Simulated scan of single mutants.
Amino acid sequence: MEELKKRAKEVKIIFFDIDDTLRIKDTGFMPDSVNLAFDKLRKKGILTGIATGRNLSGVVPEVRALNPDFYVTANGAYIVNSSGEVVYDNPYSPELAQDLVDWLKSVDSEYVFYGNNELAISKWGDLERDAMQIIYGDLKVDPDFNKSNSVYQILSLSDHDEDLVLPEKFTDKVRRVRWHLNSCDIVPINGNKREGCKIVLDKLGLPLESMMNFGDGPNDLELVDLPGLFVAMEISDDQVLKQADYVTKKVEEDGVHKALVELGIIE
């Protein structure tokens, strides 16, 4: 623990996942201790960021109200600062977006488009509601959204999603990251939270050792082996738990605030 506290003294910026880290995904509950933690970090001059698989429109009002300094969204493909200025912008090429849509249609999979600040779904049914509604509410249906909008990420959606295999022609361009039994994020091959957070640090002129991350899911695994600290929530994916520097309590047990106190970052 003393070694972790020593490393924690180097922390200058902390990124937080949203779902089941800052708030409970299924209920939307976020404890008051999260607001308290952000206030204390701000007073100590420690920067904060959101690092999420959601796009910007999916960053719920209570998280925006925390006033983080950066938003790393769509698994690192679109980054803005607290003033809304674009820090990084990496959409699919129009050709790649259409090729992915054609493949998903050929394997009987529905799909969701992530624009920079809006979403569209190919079809709206029970399976799609089960995966998406709790996060985004009702999505507009537009199977051709990609033809008139930039696309930063596509989600596959089907009852056979676990059986889908990405065709070889895509394997040097994108990869699939599971987040739901019936859905995977399809992200650029070099696009993830890790790269997004590194872009922010590079812009700030900070070393990787000065970063700390909180997360729980498979799309947080890329962050675990960075030189900075990684804190996993108690309910995290098994691989995340195994590789984390520190494991804290669940959201409803004030896990974020407790970890920051126990590591000596705030009081």
Rank of each mutant, 00 (worst) to 15 (best):
V240F: 09
K169R: 15
K193P: 06
D20C: 01
D144S: 11
I134N: 04
L139Q: 03
Q153W: 01
E62Y: 03
N190K: 14
F70R: 14
G264Q: 04
S148H: 15
Y136E: 13
E168N: 14
I154W: 05
N219F: 08
F15D: 00
L208W: 09
V112S: 07
S148G: 07
F170S: 10
T248K: 08
D161N: 11
N90A: 12
L56F: 14
E234W: 05
P31D: 03
H257I: 00
E267V: 00
V224R: 00
K25N: 11
C197A: 13
E2Q: 13
D172F: 00
Y111I: 10
T73P: 13
I154V: 13
G217D: 14
D142Q: 12
V112F: 07
D142W: 04
A51E: 08
D225E: 15
D130F: 03
G196K: 10
I14T: 12
S158E: 01
G217E: 14
E110C: 10
A259N: 09
K147F: 03
P207Y: 03
E62V: 02
Y136T: 11
F230D: 07
E209Q: 12
I46R: 02
L139P: 12
G84D: 13
V59T: 08
V177K: 02
E128G: 01
K249N: 06
S150N: 15
I154Y: 05
N190V: 10
E62A: 10
I18Y: 01
D108F: 12
F170M: 10
N149W: 01
F113R: 03
V200P: 09
R194H: 08
V165E: 06
Y78W: 02
D216M: 00
F230G: 07
R54Y: 07
Y152P: 02
I266D: 07
S122W: 04
G228R: 06
P31W: 02
L208T: 08
C197P: 04
E267R: 08
K105W: 13
S148A: 15
K173C: 00
P218L: 03
L104V: 11
L22Y: 07
S156C: 10
V101H: 06
V60P: 06
G58P: 05
A37F: 03
Y92E: 09
M30K: 13
G53P: 04
L166E: 15
E3T: 10
S83H: 09
F170Y: 12
G125I: 06
K6I: 13
E234S: 06
L204H: 00
V59Y: 04
K169A: 05
I154R: 10
V231C: 02
K198C: 04
K203I: 00
A65N: 06
V112E: 14
E110T: 15
N75R: 03
L155T: 12
V256L: 04
S57V: 13
Q133M: 15
N219R: 12
G264F: 09
N35F: 15
T171R: 14
I79E: 00
K40S: 10
L157T: 06
L96I: 09
V224H: 04
F38I: 03
K203V: 02
P218V: 01
E168I: 13
V112I: 13
D102C: 09
T48C: 11
